[in-house]
């Protein structure tokens, strides 16, 4: 605590705001075997509308939707929850380029922080932007340019995102087909080693699974924005990944 103590912090009154990224894998596999992508494309706007109606957090948090396959793209720009913003359709792609999307998020975060500060500054309050929360939904192993992406290729970008000064918190949610170790390495968590990495149990209805994932994310955003600490319950039909395989 003392390392982050700011002796001059009392010079100005402060308000805190939160940035939330919903990152959706839109690789080719997400459109096969039940079309998980379609379920999430239907459910995410509904979730954002419900959060917009939350009288406490709708003014505290801003949310962005990012899609990735061979490249990353912003579907909904970082916008306050109490403000409507359209979510455009994701471009079709084939790969699952983790390095590209993690690099994209680190770059985009700087832009979003500036925009949110400008948007919220009023009445002489200093706007403190908390470390971003990233909900990462994927169904596959990292794969780019017709090759599996090694851990070393993308973990450096993940570390850049989760280390200071960005300090992102990542919740990794793996749909059927995803890799446990990849999810665990991607997620962040507590100092005791418990991470916010979840993977689907084998026998699941994909529509119900998508609904439970979106419900858990919505609940997490509502709870976390109130307390200021990212917490998430295990979505129904999923299990928390305890650790990487030895």
């Amino acid at each position: 605590m003392t390392t982050s103590y700011s002796p001059d912090g009392a010079q100005q009154s402060r308000v805190r705001t939160y940035l939330i990224y919903l990152v959706l894998d839109t690789s080719e596999s997400m459109r096969r075997n039940g079309n998980a992508q379609a379920h999430f494309e239907r459910l995410i706007p509904v979730m954002l509308q419900q959060l917009a109606a939350h009288p406490v957090i709708n003014g505290l948090a801003a949310a962005s939707v990012v899609a990735f396959n061979d490249n990353a793209e912003t579907l909904r720009p970082m916008t306050s929850l109490d403000r409507a913003a359209s979510i455009r359709k994701a471009k079709e792609g084939y790969g699952t380029d983790y390095a590209a999307v993690l690099r994209f998020l680190a770059k985009q975060h700087k832009v979003d922080v500036r925009a949110v500060k400008l948007d919220r500054t009023r009445d002489n309050y200093v706007v403190d932007v908390a470390a971003p929360w990233i909900f990462f939904i994927t169904d596959g192993r990292p794969f780019a340019r017709n090759n599996d992406q090694e851990l070393s290729e993308w973990i450096v970008h993940r570390d850049q995102l989760v280390n200071e000064p960005i300090g992102a918190r990542i919740v990794a949610i793996g749909l059927p087909g995803s890799d446990r170790d990849t999810l665990y390495h991607l997620a962040t968590g507590q100092a005791d080693g418990v991470r916010n990495a979840f993977i689907a149990e084998r026998t699941n209805n994909l529509r119900e699974l998508a609904e439970s994932v979106v419900s858990a994310i919505e609940s997490s955003i509502a709870t976390s924005a109130s307390s200021g600490l990212l917490t998430i319950r295990t979505p129904d039909g999923m299990e928390r990944i305890v650790g990487p395989r030895p």
């Binding site: 605590m1 103590y5 912090g9 009392a10 932007v129 908390a130 470390a131 200021g228």
Partner: peptide
């Protein structure tokens, strides 16, 4: 004990 970052810790 205001912090230099925005964390609610």
């Amino acid at each position: 004990e205001r912090r230099s970052d925005a964390e609610n810790v």
